[in-house]
Design a protein around this nucleic acid. Structure first.
Length: 678
DNA sequence: GATTTCATAAACAGCT
DNA sequence: AAGCTGTTTATGAAAT
């Protein structure tokens, strides 16, 4: 294609118009500049180069027109539809083009237009300002180049004329040639500058260039080719029109490359860092001096440094001490394309997380609303976990309808009090702090863990909240949820990671804890299998091991697990009384509060009845509900009660299609580790 | 304040 | 040899 330009055997060198046509279409291809074959004389070569440079210019002009049209269209659309979710916008190609083109064709786009576009990209005022400044600078540069371009054009015409008349003035021609070469280089520089600008924007995610988009190629610069005068010229141009760059540009040696880079680099940094300027101002300019700032205030608490490891996304380089970390930071994560891109990615990650957080907050609020839990008191209570507790309790109170909770309030537990969404609803944010705190919650008081998990399944899956249950309870739950009431260690692991986002981190820690618990507690029985060893739950031992604070009656506690479905009205009553007291529910009960604690236990005792002991027989090895299933095949819905596992729809399904094989699909195939959004 | 329960860390052995 | 599994001990925090 571009051969028609350089090895233009089809084109007569003097027929510029023809050349123009071709160059108009192919000028910007990178390969076209590489090693033009010396077919013609030096003079002709220069002409070709000049012409090509001109064609580049033309190309730019054409791009301007396209940009303008697109902009106008865009504006019209905006006026009609208004501004919508900016994030989506920057994925729409229609927008990308105008923005990108606009950046390189300042003169057709007014600052206002520019602002409009950029606002769609969720730019801060600072970013906008920087962009505008840069745009103006580019505009001035381009104007100068245009003037220069006109001159060159005239000279070219003259030269061509002379050539046609076989005029021979080598010296003059050489001068002209030099100038033309310079001009070409300048144009290349211009291209490069613009290209870098585009790239920087790309890195920041402000725009994405489509494959088919006629982006200007980045032209490799051979410094040896740059005439001194061009350097001088370039200096003049750049220094004259980019005053804002002077601040960040302390390079004394001004070769074109550095000028080019430095002129775009500040924009890059400022654009990216501005959003965080208030907190991470030190990053706005990349100098070692600045970077040493953050740890001056907090000697060893750099957000990018922890546990002797560099926390830069995807790095994890080991740094023995803080100094070596700083060294590493300066060397490995300097301001380059990679770091910038990673920074941008991190920004998106944060955005995503915030989005997710908002969603989960909303969900939680709806849950709380539905459950009528006034979480005002938890907030005032010293324990940060009260929220969790109350949530848990609320579930247990409404466990008569375990599966329906998150979705529809069709539960028997009718609204008791008009619910007002208090501002003190537990937020996922606060929940995140729960993690490191070790508490024992509901499970300690025989709160059906199953119902909580079933009802908060989505919540636990997505929010990195530590479930308010002990490892033992969780392990037991995992095992009981399985069709065969037995799991291998690995399957238990998988259950943890699948059910709780919290356990998708620090695997070594919690896995160790799981193993530790399995070994430590008598209630977990290891059974040698054909396939290996599986773990089962000895329900008797499990109940034995825990102190029954509620009623002090072990047998009662044991019975409590069943017949939840029948407590519907009582649950409502309990819930009402709890709401009435407006106390941290579980805490209250745990404290041995006579009214609530005994009420709950009494209720359960009363309700348990005779149906309970169905599973007490096989408790040693397979405390499962297989016998119960046989006993109450129809009562699938109420099954969850029996061994206090309110397994949600999931386990119901598995029970229904119960096939001889294990739940291999869940344990091995759907690796949940990648569920978190990072 | 002593005891219990639990979480966490870690050493160690056996097995694959 | 490395990783997994399972056991055991130690320590500290929180609850009782």
């Amino acid at each position: 294609m571009f051969q028609c330009v350089f090895s233009s055997s089809v084109l007569q060198p003097h027929r510029t118009s023809c050349l123009f046509k071709h160059l108009f279409y192919h000028s910007a291809t990178p390969a076209s500049q590489k090693q033009p074959e010396p077919i013609y004389s030096k003079k002709t070569e220069i002409q070709r180069q000049t012409v090509r440079a001109l064609s580049v210019k033309l190309f730019i002009f054409s791009a301007l027109q396209v940009a303008r049209q697109l902009l106008l269209q865009q504006q019209q659309q905006q006026q009609v539809s208004g501004l919508k979710s900016p994030k989506r916008n920057d994925k729409q190609p229609a927008l990308q083009v105008p923005v990108s083109v606009a950046m390189m064709t300042p003169q057709v786009i007014t600052p206002q237009q520019m602002q409009q576009i950029l606002q769609q990209q969720v730019l801060s005022p600072q970013q906008l300002q920087v962009l505008l400044q840069q745009q103006q600078a580019l505009m001035l540069q381009q104007q100068q180049l245009q003037e220069f371009y006109k001159k060159q054009q005239e000279q070219l015409q003259l030269q061509l004329l002379q050539q046609q008349h076989a005029g021979k003035q080598p010296k003059e021609q050489q001068q002209v040639a030099t100038q033309q070469l310079a001009f070409q280089q300048q144009l290349l520089q211009m291209q490069q500058l613009q290209q870098q600008h585009l790239l920087s924007l790309q890195r920041q995610g402000l725009l994405t260039i489509q494959p088919g988009q006629p982006a200007l190629p980045l032209q490799p610069l051979t410094q040896g080719m740059i005439p001194a005068e061009l350097q001088q010229l370039w200096k003049e141009v750049t220094s004259a029109h980019t005053p804002e760059e002077a601040t960040g540009n302390n390079h004394s040696s001004l070769d074109l490359t550095t000028t080019c880079v430095s002129s775009s680099a500040p924009s890059k940094t400022s654009l990216i860092m501005n959003p965080h300027a208030s907190t991470n101002g030190q990053l706005s300019v990349h100098t070692p001096k600045r970077e040493s700032l953050p740890h001056e205030e907090h000697p060893h608490s750099h957000p990018l440094y922890g546990h002797g490891v560099c926390k830069w996304p995807g790095c994890e380089a080991v740094c023995e001490d803080f100094q070596s970390f700083l060294k590493h930071l300066n060397s490995e994560h300097a301001l380059d394309d990679r770091s910038t891109a990673q920074c941008r990615v991190q920004m998106q990650v944060v955005q995503q997380l915030e989005l997710q957080l908002a969603k989960d907050k909303e969900r939680l609020q709806a849950m709380m609303t539905h459950l009528h839990v006034k979480s005002t008191e938890p907030k005032t209570a010293p324990q940060p976990l009260n929220l969790v507790s109350s949530v848990t309790l609320s579930k247990s109170a409404s466990e008569a309808s375990p599966q329906s909770l998150p979705h529809t309030p069709t539960t028997p537990t009718a609204p008791i009090t008009p619910v007002t969404q208090g501002p003190s609803v537990i937020t996922t944010t606060s929940m995140h702090t729960v993690g490191p705190i070790r508490r024992r919650y509901s499970d300690k008081y025989n709160v059906p863990i199953s119902s909580d998990i079933a009802q908060n399944q989505e919540f636990y899956k997505n929010a990195e909240v530590r479930p308010p249950f002990t490892y033992a309870s969780l392990i037991r739950q995992a095992i009981l949820e399985s069709p065969e009431k037995q799991l291998t260690l690995n399957e238990i692991y998988n259950w943890f990671t699948r059910m709780f986002a919290y356990f998708r981190r620090n695997a070594a820690t919690w896995k160790n804890a799981v193993r530790h618990n399995l070994s430590l507690h008598k209630c977990f029985v290891r059974v040698e299998n054909v396939k290996g060893a599986v773990w089962t739950v000895d329900e008797v031992e499990f109940q034995k091991r825990r102190p029954q604070k509620i009623s002090g009656n072990p047998s009662l506690i044991k019975n409590m697990q069943s017949s939840h479905a029948y407590c519907t009205p009582l649950n409502a009553a309990l819930q009402a009384s709890m709401a009435e007291n407006s106390i941290p529910l579980y805490t209250t009960a745990s404290m041995g509060n006579p009214s609530l604690g005994t009420l709950a236990s009494a209720m359960r005792e009363e309700l348990n009845g005779a149906m309970e002991h169905t599973n007490s027989n096989e408790s040693d090895s397979s405390p499962g509900r297989s016998p119960l299933q046989a006993a109450h095949p129809v009562h699938v819905k109420e099954e969850p009660l029996d061994p206090e596992e309110a397994e949600g729809p999931l386990s119901l399904v598995t029970t229904a299609n119960h096939s001889p094989d294990f739940d291999q699909d869940r344990d091995y195939e759907d690796e949940p580790v990648n569920e978190d959004m990072e």
